[in-house]
Nucleic acid binder design. Sequence first.
DNA 1: CGCATTGTTCGATGGTCGTCGAACAGTACG
DNA 2: CGTACTGTTCGACGACCATCGAACAATGCG
Lengths: 112, 112
Amino acid sequence: MTASDGLHPATEDIRLPTVLAALADPARLATVQTLAQVGESACTQLQEAAGLSISRSTFSHHQKVLREAGIISVRIHGTQRLLSLRRTDLDACCPGLLDAVTSARADSPQPV
Amino acid sequence: MTASDGLHPATEDIRLPTVLAALADPARLATVQTLAQVGESACTQLQEAAGLSISRSTFSHHQKVLREAGIISVRIHGTQRLLSLRRTDLDACCPGLLDAVTSARADSPQPV
DNA sequence: CGCATTGTTCGATGGTCGTCGAACAGTACG
DNA sequence: CGTACTGTTCGACGACCATCGAACAATGCG
């Protein structure tokens, strides 16, 4: 049993419906897809890279949803939070899901 | 361009966020997972097999959401509608997604 | 210390969603 | 024709969600 730090759920606590719900929002999906390309990055840079024109508070909310779903992990570095994907943990819950979602074409580029 | 029949979206109109949103609901996820196991089946039988204790109208709603997302197709046979997965169409939009979701353990069996 | 930068938290608001029962529609069977 | 079965549609209701600005906290820099 992997202990939880209050921020990230333990690997065995990751639930598929919760993960899918987190990925269902276009802004969060773009965040995850971008994160898969650029790797670990801070909130503002990631939001910029994903092309999300939303307020900081809204992005912070999305980041929290992704984190609580077990999709991303947060590492503090100075004033900024570095976000990264929890690949292995996600694969433990649902093998192939992350690859399927991140390798999917960004489709008809929908402005978010 | 595959023509749409008004009930099912064309293959190229299937959108990943819509698919994920459809799969995010526990009742719909259970429906899809069950459908992957038992194959084509009618609404009432499928609802029974999935162990969903919800009203017929609610299941009809879920079936509509899955259908409009492009996840399932409906075939009329007498008084009943036979539901089945649109495997190839889904794989065209997002290869591996359906397998990842249907092969995932039903996890901690959550009563729905 | 003072200021800028980076994110979070806190209401508030408007919209969407899941659920239900009741009413309706279509088909099959006597 | 009448009854039964299967499923859809229609409000309605309560809950949840995405979004925002404002206020706050924490760190780094001069």
